[in-house]
Design a protein around this nucleic acid. Structure first.
Lengths: 146, 146
DNA sequence: TTTAAAGTTTAGCATAGGCTAAGTTATATG
DNA sequence: CATATAACTTAGCCTATGCTAAACTTTAAA
């Protein structure tokens, strides 16, 4: 038994899917942070560590550590003991993310899912939808009065 | 500026979504391994480390280490230098996962997404859809000749 | 203006998941 | 049946993400 080619899915194509998932995961956290920081700035004028920690449901120290990474990635800037700001790249990522998130959430609602579930599931799904799928969701919304 | 209740989303509800995502992620890898092992057993009679590593696109040593964890989780069993087997729990998880995966993939196809994209995206999405959303996808398939 | 509270940072630890390189066991072939 | 090759394991490293506890700033109140 060496090579059953059954189902027509090559090993390369298969592993590509998993590779993309792993890549998605490392980008995912950055997107969540950046989106949340943008929301906080919009809502209350500034984003503080504590607020981010509360909303994400993690410890303060965790946020501090992650922000360091986001800083080296060029997404946020911060002075010690001061509020958090987004760079131009950070704002772009936040806006792209929010647009994507909103589309997925609206799509789920149009599919007939409850508000709470739509909110929760869209948070998880948004990072795994390709542009093509996103576009298909958009078309569905148009067809179904979104 | 203390507490803007804007948008009606409580901090608790919000953080719950992220907590679920983190929980999903740790379960996700286990599910992927278990599904893949089940596929290999079905396709070629046994699952070997190397095949799993190739399909996931990771190094052999990584698979070995992860299998240790799956063993302590009671999902797989294995003798040194021998093939990998699933426990009853492992089979159950694999079957649930495959059913979920197939539904999501069919749903994406019905939405109008290409075969390749459906395959790749469903791999990422399947771990983040609740039962409610899954059911809504099922209904959509019924309405749209799935 | 001192001081207490709130917020931020640092230090140190754990786990998960990835890697390479080196060693060990099975197996297939000459 | 000896041995080369393929498969598996171990050891040791790295990064990301989480935590708690302790130290340090800011800010607000007495």
């Amino acid at each position: 038994m060496t090579k059953s080619p059954k189902k027509g899915t090559s090993a390369k194509l298969r592993s590509a899917a998993f590779k993309r998932i792993r890549a998605d995961h490392s980008a995912e956290l950055a997107e969540d942070y950046v989106e949340m920081i943008a929301d906080l700035i919009d809502e209350r004028g500034e984003a503080r560590c504590t607020d981010v920690a509360m909303r994400l449901g993690v410890a303060n120290a965790t946020v501090v550590k992650t922000l360091k990474r986001l800083q080296t990635m060029g997404l946020v800037t911060q002075e010690p003991y001061r509020a958090i700001f987004l760079t131009a790249d950070g704002w772009k990522m936040a806006e792209d993310g929010k647009r994507k998130h909103a589309l997925v959430e609206k799509f789920l609602l149009a599919l007939g899912v409850s508000q709470d579930t739509a909110r929760i599931d869209s948070e998880g799904i948004e990072h795994h939808v390709s542009v093509e799928t996103l576009r298909a969701m958009g078309k569905f919304l148009v067809r179904n009065g979104g």
